[in-house]
């Protein structure tokens, strides 16, 4: 199972806890994880990436294995530690605003 952590507002919107677990078929990529997340929690559709362009929203970042992988291609394989569930895929909201 793939582990995904969510920022506070998306947890509330999805009605779930900080971490969710998803079944994702190989290859495990950013796109595959977000597709699975949106399929499991349809209320999150459009909140992480634009529903039309599928571009990641500017104030959302993806972290894994202590690296910022936001700018990796969406179809690039995620680290094996994420694919086998040892590490979580982190969806992070930018620390900005008032």
């Amino acid at each position: 199972m793939i582990r995904v952590t969510l920022p506070y507002h998306l947890r509330v919107l999805a009605g779930t806890g900080k971490e969710v677990q998803l079944s994702v078929e190989e290859p495990v990529t950013q796109r595959a994880v977000i597709d699975a997340l949106e399929a499991t929690y349809p209320t999150l559709r459009g909140t992480i990436r634009d529903p039309v362009t599928e571009r990641r929203r500017a104030f959302v970042r993806f972290f894994a294995c202590e690296e910022d992988i936001s700018h990796e291609p969406p179809d690039a394989p995620l680290p094996p530690e994420v694919a086998d569930g040892r590490e979580a895929f982190h969806v992070v909201g930018a620390m900005a605003g008032g």
Binding site: H9, L10, G46, I48, G93, A94
Partner: peptide, 8 residues
Amino acid sequence: SSSWFGQV
């Protein structure tokens, strides 16, 4: 809405 997560 929010600048982070778009329109709901």
